[in-house]
Each structure stands twice: as structure tokens, then as C-alpha cells.
Computed example of a mutant assay.
Amino acid sequence: MREALSISITLILLMAAATVLCASCAAQAASENITIIDSAGREVEIPYPANKVVLLTADNCELAVVLDARDKVVGVEKSAPGYAEIGEMFGKAANAGGSQEPDFEKIADLNPDVVLGYKSSLENGVADELKGMGIPFVVCECNRIQTFEKDVELMGRILGKEDNAKEFLAFHNSIMDLIAERTRSISSDQRTSLYLTGGGTTFGKDGGIEPYLSAVGAKSIGSELPGESSVTVDPEWVLDQDPQVIVHWITSSKIKPTPEPLIEVKESYSNDPVLNMTTAVKDGRVHVIGWCLFKGLRFSIGLLYWAKWCHPELFQDIDPEEYNREYVKKFLGIDLENVWAQ
């Protein structure tokens, strides 16, 4: 009897010890730190997975929705409420200030596991300030074709949403593959000349836009101009270059359920006494597109628009809006109501 009782007590003690050990292991796993390489090539140690994040870019905010991680976002860039289609989704997230001038006091109150933002934040001291507060800063931009896939994978890993990131990239790459397949036979001398502008400016040779243009069989009329993304040009210069197509981008905050904002921009070219003499205007090949479809998270869909505008004969059976509609429904969980391109 005593032996049986002794065995029972021993088993109970062993089970209790195992329970404590498992709880300890679980706590250790929950607080595990990992070292990642961010988009700037920096080694950053962060908690994994991050459960509280502050996002200082529009594209990271949208990607959080795509990755089904909106509940982990405790703070967003101050313009987030105005983002087309996703702004209202961050109603519970705090205003963390601007991407280049964040509200450090608010971020300290939020006590996030990590803050994600632009590479430029390294240059203006944002990352150093956050480091002094004990908060890691990770460069993850999700808005450049050169590093896009790595950025999406990086944010998926940070948030513990690796499978969601893979699903989104599969959609993204299917569009990029479609474009590549249909434009691969376009020779350099067949590339459509394009004036890419936000109004009175264009991209210079250091603007990083060449990979986008190359993907759709186009060439920029500003490709030889010194400068980056805001090279000022006058209408006479544009006329002298005589682009075949004009693509004018507007901020996503101007995107509405009606096409009026886009039509207004298109009409400004027809009403301009100089620009209306360009081949693009005379042939009715002036187009307007929202920023998110230009260099934002959905740039593959934007490139599909560009490809069709530059080579309509190769994409006559393709409706880029249908891809945007699918994206919005599948990854944002809403129906497409806004007009993003015209």
C-alpha cells in the first residue's frame, strides 16, 4: 500500500515538474528573438513573431491587411486614415506621426515589438532614436521592384505570416509572368516612348524606374536626364521628345468611386496648348493611374495597365481592372468600388 502511494506521489511530482517545464518552454518560445536582415542589409534583432508593430509606410499598412495581420498593428503613419480602401481598417491604430518625423512619445507609449519604415529613416536619425528607446527599427519598403519579393517575405516572417506572404507573391508573380510572356519579343527599338509624370516632373536616369519600363516594353523620355524622381520639365521639352504614351500618376488619396478625378487630369493635357500637340494626346493615349498601382504594393497590376497602354495589340484580351478586383476581394476582403486607372 505504502509502495503504491509512494509511486503515485512520485508520478504526480513528475507530472507537475513536466508541466512547469512545458510552461517555461512555451514562455521561452513566445519571447524568442531572431536576427533578420532588413531591406537596407542591416542585421536587426527582433521578437518573433512580432505581435505589436508600428508601420510608417502606406505599403506596409496595406501589406498588413494582405497578410491578415491587421490586429498586430498598434500604430500607423499619420496619413493612413486617408488611404484608399484600407484607411478605415486602421481606425483602432494610433497616429504614430509621419514617416520621416514620427511621434516618438506616442511610439514609446505603444511599446511595439518593432517599427517598420523607409530606408531614408536611417539617414535622418529615426532608427537611432528608436534604438535608444529599446525599439528595433526595420527597413521594409515593399515599393521597389528590385527588392519587392524579399520585402514581402521579410514582413511575412516578422509577423509570423509566412504562408500568407507566399500566397500573395504567387498572385503577384502570376501577373509579372503574364507580362513577361507577352512582351518578350519586343526589341529595344520597338519599345514605346513614355512620359511618366506626376505633373510637370518626370524620372531622371537615377530614378530607378528603368526596371518597370523594361518589364512592359517601354522607354522613358527622361531616361537621360540627370536626377532622380522629380526632374522638372517644361511642356516644350515634352513636345520636343514627343512621347507616344503619357502616364500621369496621382496620389491614392485622390482615388474615388467615380472616374472624375482621373478624367480631370486627362482633360488638362487636351487643354494645354503645347502638350495637346504631342503624339500621345493626339492619339488619345494619355492615361492616369493611382500611386498604389504605380509603385505601391499592387504595382504588378499597374504594370499590366502600362503594358496594355503601350502595346494594346498584345493585351487586347486582358482587362487589368479584373486583376485589381480579384486582388481587392481576395487579399483585402472587400469589393472593388474605386476607379484606379483611366
Rank of each mutant, 00 (worst) to 15 (best):
A16F: 13
A17L: 13
T19N: 12
V20W: 15
V20G: 15
L21V: 14
L21R: 15
C22V: 12
C22L: 15
A23M: 14
S24I: 10
S24N: 15
C25S: 11
A26G: 04
A26I: 08
A26W: 12
A26M: 10
A27N: 14
Q28Y: 13
Q28S: 12
A29G: 04
A29S: 12
A29T: 02
A30M: 10
A30I: 05
A30V: 01
S31P: 04
S31K: 14
E32R: 12
E32M: 09
N33H: 15
N33W: 09
N33K: 15
N33D: 15
I34L: 09
I34D: 11
T35W: 10
T35N: 09
I36Q: 10
I36R: 08
I37A: 06
D38P: 07
S39A: 14
R42V: 01
R42D: 13
I46V: 12
I46H: 11
Y48G: 05
Y48E: 07
P49S: 07
A50H: 07
A50G: 11
N51R: 12
V53Y: 03
V53P: 01
V54F: 09
V54P: 10
L55T: 06
T57I: 07
T57Y: 02
T57P: 06
D59G: 09
N60S: 15
C61F: 04
C61K: 03
L63C: 10
V65S: 02
V65G: 00
V66Y: 04
V66M: 07
L67M: 05
D68E: 13
D68P: 01
R70E: 12
R70F: 04
D71V: 05
K72W: 01
V74M: 05
G75C: 02
V76F: 06
E77W: 07
S79N: 11
S79Q: 10
S79A: 11
A80R: 03
Y83A: 02
A84R: 01
A84N: 10
E85M: 05
I86P: 02
G87T: 01
G87Y: 01
G87V: 00
F90C: 02
G91M: 02
A94L: 00
N95I: 00
N95Q: 03
A96V: 00
G97P: 04
S99T: 05
Q100T: 09
F104S: 08
F104D: 10
F104E: 11
I107R: 08
A108H: 13
D109V: 05
D109G: 12
D109R: 10
D109C: 07
L110E: 09
L110T: 05
L110G: 11
L110S: 11
L110V: 00
N111F: 03
N111L: 01
N111P: 00
P112L: 05
P112G: 07
V115G: 06
G117E: 07
G117V: 01
G117N: 07
G117C: 10
G117S: 09
Y118F: 07
Y118L: 04
K119P: 03
K119G: 08
S120Q: 11
S120M: 08
S121Q: 13
L122W: 13
L122T: 09
E123D: 15
N124A: 09
G125Y: 14
